[in-house]
Design a protein around this nucleic acid. Structure first.
Lengths: 208, 208
DNA sequence: TCATCCAGTTAACAACTGTTCTCTGGAATT
DNA sequence: AATTCCAGAGAACAGTTGTTAACTGGATGA
């Protein structure tokens, strides 16, 4: 069942990845709606027309970037939410995971934060879908927790969305603090932890 | 102390406002970093060079738009937070106010949501400053509430930021639901109310 | 071995961009 | 009444943009 790719397909994949990498780099200081096709091909070191062998448009490339940035993140979210242990441990664990991820893939995080409300409709839509999937997955994990007894589906999804949004806000804060001194990042960490803690408290008294 | 403006200054202000209006309209389907100077002057019906009489660059225009969109909003936020009454009444009141504002100034709201993490640094900075001011003001109002007894300054500011971010998330959801049928907007309203309610519950048990 | 395929190239297109310098005509100042 | 000021116009600049068509040459499959 192994699927050995020919030289041709391997080369094509490599070029395609070069497009994604170059675009992501260029998008650190501009939005997708101002990203030019020629700009990307120039950065890759390839003729402008080669672009069309891989993408219909820059919007199409943007959608591919959304998949790259968020597609592989679902398992991580699931395991993070479902981790057993003290509520406080889970909070600090989640925040540290976010901090680590932002440190490892800052350009991806920046891209998602920027284009979530950006000027390119298909990309906004793709991000919206992925975040909705995250919320559904978080909801499914929350439902397993004994604390979810008595909660209805709507309220669980409401809480899940709160967590997902909070995750993005925190990621964006870490991104801004990336180049800042260590104590600024520590400040962000403490802020994020307390916000999550307050939500957690609200959660545990929801049915009072 | 009345300051009557001459014909010249009145006309200049009018043209400047025309630039802001035209730009805001063009920004409904693109980001500021792709907004061209000529594009704006064409929409206003004026020569490209006239732009420089009012703004140094499109980034400069963007900063002016931030002030227009958020500058006049501070009194509204203050009075909303400080409104007396049942906690539940204050929540529904705040959400309805947001819904009304989004309905009245959708382009402004879209602009802020889009450029908060957008590709133009001075504009991001201007938005960040305004939101920080909002948080400080919300914090000041929260501090007056008897429920704030025993809270330290850091925690009050943490809560204030949570409210401000939640305000933006809600506004963005209303924006997406603007053209949608009435029941979708009602769904958003109910979601926002419950999220605010959960935060409010967390707040009241924070010191337990 | 030979015909087919197809990722990437080359050349050309009309249209667009930001910015400069020079000019104009009516408002503002003296 | 004479002078200064200045918002906007006009023309020109060198570069840029997306998209088309026709091509090349090495990998692929018969």
């Amino acid at each position: 069942m192994s699927h050995t790719l020919g030289i041709r397909q391997v080369q094509k994949r490599k070029t395609r990845q070069a497009f994604l990498d170059a675009a992501l780099a260029l998008l650190e200081e501009q939005s997708l709606s101002s990203l030019g096709l020629r700009e990307v091909t120039r950065a890759v070191g390839v003729a402008p027309t080669a672009f069309y062998r891989h993408f219909r448009s820059t919007a199409d490339l943007g959608v591919a970037l959304v998949d790259e940035a968020l597609g592989s993140l679902h398992p991580m979210v699931r395991t993070t939410v479902s981790t057993t242990g003290d509520s406080e441990e889970r909070i600090t664990g989640a925040i540290e995971l976010i901090a680590r991820h932002v440190g490892a893939y800052p350009a991806h995080v920046r891209f998602i934060a920027r284009e979530r409300h950006g000027g390119v409709q298909p990309v906004r839509e793709a991000i919206r879908e992925q975040l909705a999937r995250f919320a559904e997955e978080v909801k499914a994990e929350l439902a397993k927790d004994p604390e979810a007894a008595g909660w209805n589906d709507d309220d669980l999804l409401m809480l899940a969305h709160l967590y997902v949004d909070q995750m993005l806000i925190t990621a964006s804060l870490f991104l801004e603090a990336l180049e800042a001194p260590e104590d600024e990042r520590e400040r962000v960490t403490q802020l994020a932890i307390r916000q999550l803690r307050l939500i957690s408290i609200g959660r545990s008294h929801w049915l009072d």
